[in-house]
Simulated assay, not measured.
Amino acid sequence: MISPSDRALAVELIREANQNGARLALACKELNISVRTYERWVAEGGIKEDQRPLAQRPETKNKLTQREREEILEVVKKEEFADLPPTQI
Rank of each mutant, 00 (worst) to 15 (best):
S3V: 07
P4H: 06
S5D: 15
R7E: 05
A8D: 09
A8M: 04
L9S: 10
A10R: 09
V11N: 04
V11G: 08
E12V: 10
E12N: 13
I14L: 05
I14T: 03
A17R: 07
A17D: 09
N18D: 12
Q19G: 00
N20E: 05
G21N: 00
G21M: 01
G21Y: 00
L24P: 03
L24C: 04
L24V: 06
A25K: 14
A25Y: 06
L26E: 08
L26C: 05
L26K: 04
A27R: 04
K29N: 15
K29R: 12
L31W: 09
S34I: 00
S34R: 00
V35L: 11
V35W: 08
V35N: 11
R36N: 12
R36H: 12
T37W: 04
Y38R: 00
Y38K: 01
E39R: 09
E39N: 06
W41E: 07
V42Q: 06
G45D: 02
I47V: 05
K48A: 14
K48I: 11
K48L: 13
E49Y: 13
E49F: 14
E49N: 15
E49W: 13
D50K: 01
Q51L: 05
Q51N: 05
R52S: 10
R52Q: 12
R52D: 11
P53D: 04
P53N: 02
P53E: 03
L54Q: 13
L54R: 15
A55F: 08
Q56L: 11
Q56P: 08
R57L: 10
P58W: 06
E59A: 12
K61I: 07
K61H: 11
K61W: 08
N62Y: 00
L64K: 14
Q66F: 14
R67H: 09
E68N: 05
R69L: 15
R69I: 15
I72S: 12
I72F: 15
I72G: 11
L73W: 10
E74R: 11
V75C: 03
V76N: 01
K77P: 10
K78P: 01
E80G: 06
F81G: 00
D83H: 08
L84K: 01
L84E: 02
L84A: 01
T87K: 15
T87M: 13
Q88S: 06
I89W: 06
I89E: 03
I89N: 02
